[in-house]
Each structure stands twice: as C-alpha cells, then as structure tokens.
Design a protein around this nucleic acid. Structure first.
Length: 406
DNA sequence: CGAGATTCATGTGAAGTATACCTTTAGGCTTAA
DNA sequence: AAGCCTAAAGGTATACTTCACATGAATCTCGTA
C-alpha cells in the first residue's frame, strides 16, 4: 500500500521534472520583483529623484506624498528610486539610510509602538514586541540616529491605514525628530492609495507630510500591454503565450483602474495553471480561470490568517448569508456568534467588540458593512458578503475546519 | 394633515481591566581569593 | 567580596469590557385646519 503511494508520488515528481517548464524565470512576474527598467513611470521617477536628490548633499529632502490607485507603480517607483540613490551614496560614501515600512493592518507596523520598534530593528537593534514604554522606544530610536551624521529616508507604504488606526500624532512625532536631532535629518515618503485620506488629518501634519506630491495616474490598456510584453519576454520561454493573451490580461486589469500588479499576477497564474494542466501554450480560457483563482486565493488567505474571534464572527455572517438573502444586521450576527462560541468553547466577546470586528472585516474587503437607520426599528449595520457567492461553501468549510467545528 | 416628540437597536467614544511581557532591583546563593 | 541567578516589584502595550451617551428615520401624538 505504502509503496504504491510512494511509487505514485515519485512518478509524479519524475513526470514533473521531465516536463519542460513554460517559465524561464518566474520571479520576474512576482510582485516583489524590481525590474531594471521601469516602463511608463519616467516622469514620476524623475520627480521623485529630484525631490530626494538633496540627500546626496546630506541636506534634508522635502517630505513627499505619493498618491495613486493600487498597482500604479507607487511602491515600485519609491523602491527603485531610493535604491538608485543608495547605490550612488554607497559609491561616494555618503551616509544615507533608507527604511521601508509597510503599515498594512495586522502587519508589523500598524501602531506607533510597532512602527518605531520595526524601524529600530531595521537599524539593527532588537526591540521586544511589547512591554516597553513608547517613549523609551523613541529614546532608543533617537540614540541610534544620533550615532552618526546621516540622512534617513523613511518610506511609509499604505500610510493611510496607519493614520486611520493610530492617529496622525505619529507623523507629527516623526517630523519633530528633525528639530530635536542635530546630526540626523529624516524625510518621509508617504504612499497612499486613498486619495481622500488627507482630508481628515491635522492640517499641520498634512502640510508637513505633503511638501511635495506626486500623482500616479492609472495605466491604460496600451501601457499595460507594453509592461506585460516586456516582462513576459523575460519570464516565459519562446512561443508559450497564445494569441491575444497579453491583450486580454491588460484589458482585465485596465477595467480595474489600470492595476499592473493584477495584470502581472493574472499572467503568472495563467501560466501556472497551463503548466499544471500539461499544456504547452497559454490560451484565453486560462486567464478567466486565473482570475477566479486569484480572487479565491486572496480571500481564503486573508480568512485563514485571521484570529479565531474574527473567524467565528465571519462564520456567523456566512451562515446567515447562505441561509437567506435579505439584509443581515449586527444583532443577528451576534446571537449566532454566541451559539458558535458555545459550540466550540470559545470565550464570547461583547457586542461592542463584535461591532469593531465587523468594521475590521469590512476594511479587509471580505464584507460590506454600512451603517443604516431603520427608523422606528433602530439603527444597525447592513452587512453583505463582498466575495463571489460561489466561494461561500468553500469559505464555510475553511472556517469550520479552522475552528474545529464538527 | 403635518410638525415635533418618541422610540428602538445599535453605533461610538472614553475609561477601566486583564493579560502577557519588559526592565530593574534586592536578595540569596555560589565562587574565587 | 565579587559575581551570578532568581523572584518580586513596578511598569507598558494591546485586546477587550463597561459605561454612557449619540444617532436618525419610521412611527406616534396631538394641535390645528
């Protein structure tokens, strides 16, 4: 029995190895890849380089704010430009340090403490995850900075999330470093895809943060095609891509506000699916398949990595949503949530907290939750599931398994 | 009939609590001289 | 006496709870036409 399975598996591996891969270099299509040349962002790169250039004379560059929808090349431009700067700086022995922080929710840098702590770690100083006063962390941070004369460029990706969750005082504190330290100057590169976010922050913070602004317009379908062509040439072997495939990927992504990241991902996943199916040429239907798979993986991955309480809350919502199709209210969710908690022996949270969790799930884009007033019948949130309904059973199963239900 | 008051179910802010973790410090014990 | 380990003391961030007040349109109330 065992040997048969073993045989089967080794056979599978052999098969896999014998089959020629469609990819030449798959990592070119991954979002972490920084190409040596960036297409259609010359203008933005030039602007950013101009703004940051004073760092090479050890002057403080202005703070910059980069706006634009997802997948318009903001992060890429920031990383590319700063990498160039630090290359030059290294050659000429100019002391410049670049820090890149992602402030996404539930990530390492989504509170004031965690942000500063993470920067200290990047500078080579270990900081415990909790226990120290925030002021102490600032002291350590200052001490590290003061060790040598230098310019620090801090890139804060998805800064809107940080400010939304932890307030704008952080930015204010960071900009204050400049007046407190003589040796070191820091400047901030803020990246946001929420164009409206600066409306609700302290005007002082706003003005200091956006001394300069660079707008990233969406790519149009033609530009996307060029980007894809260029990368596909590096990533795939010859004659692997079927007719119209690149055009279709571009069109899909252009429909979604010109998101290049998405276009590249579509192409990569389509390639993987083709390969797995044992075919030799990517054709159009693989793209549709890829689109579904991407969405599914994204959602399932978010859900999988949520804490138990969030999962239980979501399961309650999913149960209700699959049973009836009219609006779902907070009260319904809470009572079902309590039942679930009892079944799996999970200490139930208060409704107050559940209310916040629902907001969090909304922020993650798994559900839509809008506050409505039902007049005489009070007010509540109108909750709907924000993922394709075809995914519901899968989500349900995943959650039940994650929570040890049944 | 319509303006204003009422009402409901929950949103939302502030303040307090539990937990897990951190540093400092004071003993207490060991060790080396 | 100096050095090292340990446990207690005193402190923090974070996730959560408790308390109290805010919301806003459907419905009710009641004066008026």
């Amino acid at each position: 029995m065992e040997t048969m399975i073993e045989k089967g598996i080794t056979g599978l591996f052999e098969n896999f190895l014998n089959k020629e891969s469609l990819f030449k270099e798959k990592k070119v299509l991954q979002s972490s890849y920084t190409p040596s040349e960036i297409t259609h962002r010359d203008e933005q790169i030039k602007q950013l380089a101009n703004i940051l250039a004073p760092a090479l004379r050890t002057d403080k560059p202005s703070n910059v704010f980069l706006y634009g929808k997802t997948g318009t090349g903001k992060t890429l431009t920031a990383k590319y430009t700063t990498a160039q700067i630090s290359k030059v700086a290294e050659e000429r022995d100019i002391p410049i340090t670049i820090l890149y922080l992602n402030c996404k929710l539930n990530k390492v840098a989504d509170t004031e403490y965690r942000l500063i702590a993470q920067m200290c770690r990047d500078l080579g100083r270990d900081i415990p995850a909790t226990g120290l006063p925030t002021e102490e962390i600032y002291r350590i941070f200052y001490a590290i900075l003061e060790q040598k004369h230098q310019v620090i460029i801090i890139i804060l990706d998805e800064i809107d999330q940080l400010v939304k969750k932890a307030g704008d005082g952080i930015i204010y504190n960071l900009t204050r470093v400049n007046s407190e330290l003589k040796q070191t100057q820091i400047s901030i590169v803020g990246i946001s895809n929420d164009l409206l976010f600066t409306d609700n922050i302290d005007p002082r913070v706003k003005s200091s943060l956006s001394e300069e602004e660079i707008i990233f317009p969406p790519y149009n379908a033609i530009q996307l095609q060029e980007i894809l062509h260029r990368r596909a040439k590096l990533a795939f072997k010859e004659n692997v891509i079927g007719d119209g495939v690149i055009e279709k990927c571009s069109a899909y992504a252009a429909r979604e506000h010109g998101d290049a990241r998405r276009a590249l991902e579509l192409l990569r996943v389509a390639g993987e699916l083709t390969e797995r199916a044992g075919k030799e040429k990517i054709d159009l239907e693989h793209i549709d398949e890829a689109e579904q798979k991407i969405e599914r993986d994204r959602v399932l991955d978010i859900i999988k990595t949520q804490p138990k309480q969030q999962q239980a809350s979501l399961l309650a919502i999913v149960y209700i949503a699959s049973k009836r199709s009219d609006a779902i209210f907070t009260g319904d969710v809470y009572s079902l949530y309590l039942e679930i908690c009892e079944k799996i022996a999970l200490r139930p949270l208060t409704q107050r907290r559940l209310s916040d969790i629902i907001s969090e799930l909304d922020m993650l884009g798994i559900i839509n939750a809008k506050v409505i007033s039902k007049g005489r019948f009070g007010r509540t949130r109108d909750i709907t599931i924000a993922v394709p309904t075809g995914l519901l059973p899968k989500i349900k199963a995943l959650l039940e398994q994650a929570l040890d239900l049944l």
